[in-house]
């Protein structure tokens, strides 16, 4: 019994090493934050469009079929990176909606004119308030929304080929069934 007591420090150390090794082994990113809005309805919003004559984006537009919502900005470098892929996905028929986060509409228009416009509709979130409703903490972020208008997945950072083919598209497919 008394001898067991002297094994206690060793047990604590083993537990500690395990607890420290685990996050490294699973490649956890300490800054990643899971969305608390998963399986919850998309926050209600009604955002103005990029120009006076173009329509904005209303949260109702997002339900009905599974869609992607991409929060982006012209001043964000990774957004610039992911646009070509989004354009390609859009051409393949994936419905993508955009929320322009804290950006000048003129700058956004120029950005899309230059790189291509993958969006079925873009809402302008000048003060970033709607992004906060989504729990956005960095741009770009991409959300998968199901037909019932519920958030099913969030991807933080640029969408890469890998992310699109392995995560986003299969999920959209599954939700379409």
């Amino acid at each position: 019994m008394r001898r067991l007591l002297f094994l206690l420090p060793l047990a604590v150390v083993l537990a500690l090493v395990g607890a420290l090794a685990w996050p490294i082994l699973e490649g956890r990113d300490p800054r990643a934050l899971p969305s608390v809005l998963l399986d919850k309805p998309v926050p209600a919003f009604d955002l103005p469009g990029l120009a006076a004559d173009t329509g904005g984006l209303h949260s109702d537009e997002l339900s009905g079929r599974p869609v992607l919502v991409n929060v982006f900005a012209s001043w964000c470098a990774p957004c610039r990176q992911e646009i070509p892929l989004l354009v390609q996905l859009s051409a393949e028929g994936v419905p993508i909606y955009g929320i322009a986060y804290k950006d000048e509409p003129a700058a956004t228009r120029k950005f899309l004119a230059q790189l291509g416009d993958p969006y079925r509709g873009v809402g302008v979130d000048r003060d970033g308030r709607i992004a906060i409703e989504f729990g956005v903490y960095g741009v770009p972020e991409t959300y998968v929304i199901d037909g019932a208008g519920r958030i099913r997945h969030r991807h933080v950072g640029a969408v890469t080929e890998d992310v699109a083919r392995r995560t986003l598209l299969p999920l959209l497919e599954e939700l379409s069934k």
Binding site: L33, P34, V36, L37, E133, G135
Partner: peptide, 8 residues
């Protein structure tokens, strides 16, 4: 805030 960003 917690409703949007979680207890984190």
């Amino acid at each position: 805030l917690t409703a949007r960003y979680g207890p984190f």
